[in-house]
Amino acid sequence: MNSESWQVKATILLVSSLTIMSMITISASLPDMTKSFSYLPNAASLVKLVLSFPGLFIAISAIGAGLIIDKFGRLKLLGIALVLYAIGGSSGYWLDNIYLILAGRALLGISVGISMTIVTTLVADYYQGKARQKFAGIQIAVMSIGGIIFITLGGFLADINWRVPFLLYFFSILILPFTYLYLKEPTKYLEVKPLDKSIKSPKIIWFVFINIMLMWIIFFIIPVQVPFYLKSLGVEKNALIGIAIASSTFFSAVSAFSYSKIKDKLNFQQVFCLGYFLMALGFITMAISSSFLMVILGVIFTGLGMGVLIPNANIWVMQLAPIEIRGREIGRLTTFWFMGQFLSPILLLPLLKIISLAQLFYVISIILIGLSLLFFILHLKRKK
């Protein structure tokens, strides 16, 4: 198999695009979905949980997926995961019970935990050095572009009915044949000796994992809270809400495409410093916003920051993880990534009972500036 062929790359990128659409495709549906289930106690909290609930099950399943693919191979589970993705993802269209919809979202999460762990591990297996660095940036960029397409479609479809965007999850079935045609078990992985339990990654990898969780707790505020923030500013069209969230995703794609060139000039710590600073600018801008356009500017800054943070974290983990336990470590990366998304609304809902969304954005911007300074200090220590 030629890993440089466009068919192999396109297939990996298509499977990767399912990850981001799994969570945020239905963002624009949340306000109308809340109205539909308004007869339930805590309807708003339950509906927001529909968006983030897959994250918990991605986090749980990714660890197991990583262990399995290290032992039995990378590709055995991928086809099953894509079928489960379509079944679980479309549940909101077919079901009238919010708790059954949450069960469907759990199934969606399990499928993503498996598929994302597999494709991210394949990127590490198929590509090395500069080629890996470049492809990781392209992978995140294409995921973002896929997010733009599905968020925007979700916004327009939500104006028909909040249930219709759930049908977009059938996209995984269209990708399924290509995974069997073009993806093969990597040769270098097959040559690796049986797992030695004494093999471990450097301890700093846990610092990277925790950092991944923090950045997703913060960034996931955009799809969860911005729809409600825009409603409070008088924006009623769900399509406009979809465009706002898609703007963040689009500009994360722009910076992710540039990641390889940025990484050539900066080390891992400097890239994190830059990314967090851009996100801080974004949240400050949203905090002072009084119009739709100001919110758009804010989400653009957050997108630019996140676009370099994600590939930077992924590449750092790939570099730190020995090939013998690469699947396990990338499974952990996936776990911390989506645990952050799941925890985001849970941690922030209590805060929103005592402060406004604008005040929350101020608090988040201060935290982001602190994180940016932390990585700047780590860079200075590394330089010494």
Rank of each mutant, 00 (worst) to 15 (best):
F209N: 11
Y362C: 06
L102R: 10
T335V: 03
L49G: 09
H379M: 06
R382E: 12
P41V: 03
I118C: 01
P227Q: 03
S289A: 14
Y39L: 05
S90A: 15
S38I: 09
I364V: 15
L174C: 12
I217G: 11
F135A: 11
A280F: 00
K265G: 09
I296K: 09
V235M: 03
I222W: 00
A256C: 09
Y93N: 05
A44G: 04
I24L: 07
A246W: 00
L230S: 08
I114L: 03
Y169E: 01
I160M: 12
K265S: 11
Y169G: 07
A65K: 11
M215G: 06
S29E: 02
M339N: 04
I377S: 02
S252C: 10
G73I: 02
L266A: 13
W6V: 14
L107T: 14
K130T: 15
S248C: 14
I323M: 13
V299E: 05
L274T: 14
L374T: 14
K35P: 00
Y229G: 05
P194M: 01
I262F: 05
S247I: 05
T187Q: 12
A358Y: 00
G282T: 07
F150K: 07
E324C: 07
L82H: 09
L266D: 07
G305N: 08
Q128R: 14
S52W: 02
Q133W: 00
I60G: 13
L240Y: 09
V164N: 03
V317T: 11
N267R: 13
G305A: 06
I63Q: 05
G298C: 04
R332H: 11
P31E: 06
Q270G: 15
V112Y: 00
S45H: 01
P186R: 02
E4F: 02
L357W: 04
L183Q: 06
V254P: 07
T19N: 10
F178Q: 09
K197F: 14
E191H: 10
P177I: 01
R332V: 04
K381D: 02
P165T: 10
F207N: 12
G129C: 08
G155A: 05
A106H: 05
L368P: 04
I217F: 06
F166T: 07
G327Q: 05
I140S: 10
F376Q: 12
Q139V: 12
E329R: 15
I24V: 12
G89E: 02
P311F: 00
R332S: 13
M279I: 13
N238H: 04
R132V: 11
L84S: 12
I114F: 01
T335G: 12
A10T: 14
I369V: 14
A321H: 09
P223W: 00
V308M: 04
V8Y: 04
S247H: 05
Q225D: 11
L14W: 01
